[in-house]
Design a protein around this nucleic acid. Sequence first.
DNA 1: GAGCACTGC
Length: 680
Amino acid sequence: MPHDPDPPPAKKFKPGSPFFRLDKKPVMLLPRKGITQLPIDVQRKQLPIYQAKSQLINQLRQLHNAVLIGETGSGKTTQIPQYLYEAGIGRQGIIAVTQPRRVAAISLAGRVAEEKKSQLGKLVGYTVRFEDMTSSETKLKFMTDGMLLREAIVDPLLLRYTVVILDEAHERTIHTDVLFGVVKSAQRKRKEQNKIPLKVLVMSATMDVDLFSQYFNKSPVLYLEGRQYPIQIYYTKQSQSDYLQAALVSIFQIHQEAPPSHDILVFMTGQEEIEALARTCRDIAKHLPDTCGPMTVIPLYASLPPAQQLRVFQPAPKGCRKVILSTNIAETSITISGIKYVIDTGMVKAKRFNPDSGLEVLSVQRVSKAQAWQRAGRAGREDAGSCYRLYTEEEFDNLASMTVPEIQRCNLAGVLLQLLALGVPDVLNFDFMSRPSPESMRTAVEQLDLLGAVERRGDQISLTPLGKKMACFPLEPRFAKTILVSPEFSCAEEVLTIVSLLSVDSVLYNPPARRDEVVAVRRKFVSSEGDHITLLNIYRAFKKVSGNKEWCRENFVNSRNMSLVAEVRTQLRDICIKLGLKLESSHLELAKVRRCLAHGMFTNAAELQPDGTYVALDTHHPVAIHPSSVLFQAKPAYVIFNELLHTSRCYMRDLCLVDPDWLQEAAPEYFRRKLHATKS
DNA sequence: GAGCACTGC
């Protein structure tokens, strides 16, 4: 242990609320231990929700809307669709169950197919991007919420469906929030037009119940009662100035006192601090007295290679304690069994969006109460557990009650384009459950206007023919625009590649310890024309060796992301073919490609100033070239960039050298204003 | 001369 004269924070803990849930909140269902060894139909009947089956069916038969409350894993997601189907409710069409995440949709479909003793893709199926496991026989369909939203563009009344179940609604993803409005409107219109009614069920953990119920015509809230393993909550007596130190001390406090089979899950903010704390823990664990057992420390975050992520599921050797240091990936996406203790730093790294500057800032912030409960809940999935909050009870009381829904903190251009494509008559007054700010709506309309996607007549906004085509692409509007103008420059093939590369996580792997090697190996791809062309060179080389894994390793290319790029590209290319676009290659004439990029992404342009700094032309904010760019040492007069990242300075990332004439011809009026303003 | 939580179409 470090020499710390103060008593460790864990000693200062006092018991807080004795149970996980607050008073009056319903108790949650959780699957019983050992249930998986039983035959499948016995398992189904042992789920506590089974007791409520006939009552639930009676209620759901009559209701058009209902809000169902119950913890994830209660069995509600797998059982209720089956109950409806077995009771003949909604048999004329399909019962859809939406999920925020692909893996959830896929694994739930697998589970339910197994329970129905039916081959996956027949009665029970799933649809996610790049994968459709459904057939004409499919009646129970699990899908990502984004996928149902895409379908709604073709069929705004969702006529294939008789029931839509929006699961995990409390997560409030941007897709779920838009779907709320879409299903509500479809339901009303189908009623007005005397079509088969649409039943809408919203499933959630305990948060936001009133909001959901109010929004869906004051629909009844059905509570699924059951058992909940109690979780003891502890708060610190005093506010902690250093949550990392507090976490460290708490880990070893628990380690010295608790039986070794009890695992610890620590919620932290990011890769760097996780790796640093992991090293410190391992060092300290080496020098502990023999009375203390050994400890394995496992980091967990999304950018970790899959094989290393799997380590969190392996049980520690007997007598050894498992300590998992995780980002919020373990809040929802990854469920680890055997967790007895949760340590919650109370902090999270999250993106914030400033609609005025169009700037996204990634910053460390306090969690919401809802998030804190979600984290605590990870200690009580199989048995009673404890949660140590590294903040005082008063600090907890002052937290925001829920996380601000995604729709209120991101760029809305894509959402508005989608709503317009859905035929929503008055987008600015769309019936959002949580309305985004008027400024961010205005910014989005302006952006779409600049791209030529919309026409404005007074308050009326409608799609132009170009806008209609843009909405066909599962992309940010500016990327869709770039693809659509590419035939004019005879470079669609190259632009498809570049847009695909920009719309997934980076394909470049940069282990800091091998920096010199990375620089040397990457030299052969570098283009003086910028990062876009450099990426294109890497993709071309990757294709030349047919995606060889060994080649990826040698060249520090992330093969998982590169394969995803290829999949995205195929999808985008298919859409181009459906739209009848002329797909040509510019081959070696890469200036054509850059000119095309300038036409699609002119809103992200920057100009070199006489003093050697850069100014973003859109906002006149001072910006700088990110050191990871191949243009870092260069001083091009004009560039376009893919994104701005505000850290120590405001950095442009992924740059492409452009000619100012191209910008002028792409948006003459806009640049007359912008260039003039800069010079004055 | 930096350093990036998590999803998804």
